[in-house]
Design a protein around this nucleic acid. Sequence first.
DNA 1: GTCTATATACAGATAGAC
DNA 2: GTCTATCTGTATATAGAC
Lengths: 211, 211
Amino acid sequence: MGTREKILEAAAWLFSTRGYAATSLAQVARAAQVSKALVLWYFESKEHLFRAALQHFLTPYEIDAQVLLGLNEYEQVDKLIDDYYDFVADHLPSVKFVLGQVVRGDETSAELVAHVSALYGVYRDLLTSILERGCERHVFPAYIKPAQDAALIMAALNGLLLQHLVEPEGSPMVRDLRTYLKQLVRVRLCAASTQADTSCVVPPASPRREA
Amino acid sequence: MGTREKILEAAAWLFSTRGYAATSLAQVARAAQVSKALVLWYFESKEHLFRAALQHFLTPYEIDAQVLLGLNEYEQVDKLIDDYYDFVADHLPSVKFVLGQVVRGDETSAELVAHVSALYGVYRDLLTSILERGCERHVFPAYIKPAQDAALIMAALNGLLLQHLVEPEGSPMVRDLRTYLKQLVRVRLCAASTQADTSCVVPPASPRREA
DNA sequence: GTCTATATACAGATAGAC
DNA sequence: GTCTATCTGTATATAGAC
């Protein structure tokens, strides 16, 4: 591995775990086993180094929609849920970093945030189109609103991943919940599609007094 | 407002928006319109100031479970969802800050993270107990698993709030999704537990989007 | 390309006048 | 309590030897 890449990798790691301000060039240099001056020889300034590190993060953010071919609608939804979850779980350091940037609205990484948002949008739109197709073909019940259901499924996934982030312990809870989410989605997409529309079924409006 | 409070408020704001490392005492002093030395006179060190700011954030983190009395199970679930969402939305700066600390696993704020996690747990457990009670009384369908369903609802809420964070623009999308989530939960909790319960059909609350 | 040495700025923190 | 002046360490960045 070239010296430049060594520096870049060290910088990416440090920036992602400690943030921009809390990471010094001296730390980067030490981690990369070079001198401070060499870091600035390759990357004009700390700012430039940071931007280069961002690009390093962006590289793996791609999505392959081809894997869904040949599956029925239910399997497609299942697979998309699993893929999204696994993808984010596999890139937790990057995700942490991006989330950190998002949270503090850092202007220097607007591009990164936009890129990740776009990727998120791709997943959500893909899920939406699967649901749409399922509805058109009457495979899914009529009360499914593709855009909204897709958005909520993604929200639930992001919530689980957030929990995964807060409790990085190998708590099997979150993994179980992913399975439970898939079951729940399946029930919703399966449930009595031929029955009358149940989307307008609500409980009694008048409060029932408790004992 | 006393000088100490003025400093504390400025510090809390800066720490929450820029993070610990990127916030200097000079910035805090300028924001509070005092000298650097005075900041350190009130708060022994930057570290102490930070911890004091954390306490400032913790104060509003309380929950009032009394508001659920007198509501039936469905209304309780609805209200809990709304309350949790509104609470977090009303404390977005604090939440951003906490999330930032969580994301970078900052040791100095482990106490804050623990406190917020505990609060989250309270909400989730409250929701779980509502679902449990509903199941015991056969108001909710038998396929409901209180713990898992509660966790997923909370995850979905957190996902929505995360989205709210990323797109702070007044996009009505997220707010609509909250309503849709409540409908979806209601359908799940209502659906055909007993056919008698489906008699309570009212006109759709919101217009349906047809593709 | 890689280093040491150094310039310059700013950080957190202290001393002491008022 | 509040300030100015200052100390000390460390940050980014540059200069120049090799």
